[in-house]
Amino acid sequence: MGEPFISVKNLSYAYEEDDGRKIQVLKNLSIDIMRGDFLAVLGHNGSGKSTLARILNMILFADSGKVVIDGKEIIPNEISDDEIIELRKKIGMVFQNPDNQLVATIVEDDVAFGPENLGIPSGEIRERVDNALAELGMSEYAKHEPHRLSGGQKQRVAIAGILAMLPECIIFDESTAMLDPKGRQEVLSAIEKINREKGITVIMITHYMDEAARADRVVVLDDGDLIFDGKPEEVFSHEKELISMGLDVPQCTSLIYKLREAGFKLEGRCLSAKECAELLFGELKNN
């Protein structure tokens, strides 16, 4: 395993409301993220999950605690702009609203924006842009205008824009929240592909349980505290606690959970409709 790619220790962050009240967003949070991880961060609104993403990308700086990215400790006020850019090159971020993160008026120009900022020679940018668009199945839209694309397509362009910077890690900050079901599936498959095929570390911030279920590891935040950290099936077995935190459990998991409560003996993990069907089928066969 070796060194974690991202290491967060005792991280705290608070912001001040207009009326002077201090709101503690993150409390003593510690988490290690390994290279190649596919991590989902779950939590309801205001649980601090987006703040964590912003701290990892140095848009915000922690009040206390230690953040180390790829062996480099981030010390607020000491880290230079060049060092920040160097780290941001490694950690890309895809946001919620696809419209508010595309800069250029032509798809391929937008994908080129990141590499252009990094000062990559033009021939190589061309190559990276073409590869990134092909990777996300958007090659045929290279010359299109972003505002004529669907939400899922725009979000894929945004991902291509990050991919063209050749990052080691991509943070998705509720990147599917504004999309229709079809767009969500497009983007989720893209995220999975990036992690599985390219080995890029993925941190997926979401409040959809079924999305989190697709990750290798789920972290649950509640009011700035880390409540659960483990494999999805472990985390989702705490249904009562999750519901009390205002989170849903995937419908199929919930169904199995209720059946178990009603006295049925259903052993095994259930995170997808397929697994649910198999469990139910097995149970029916036994009876």
Partner: peptide, 18 residues
């Protein structure tokens, strides 16, 4: 914020694809 995350830091040291 999105532009900053994509390492935008003004025109200096910027290249162009085309």
């Amino acid at each position: 914020v999105a532009m900053e995350c994509r390492c935008y830091h003004g025109g200096e040291g910027r290249t162009r694809m085309n």
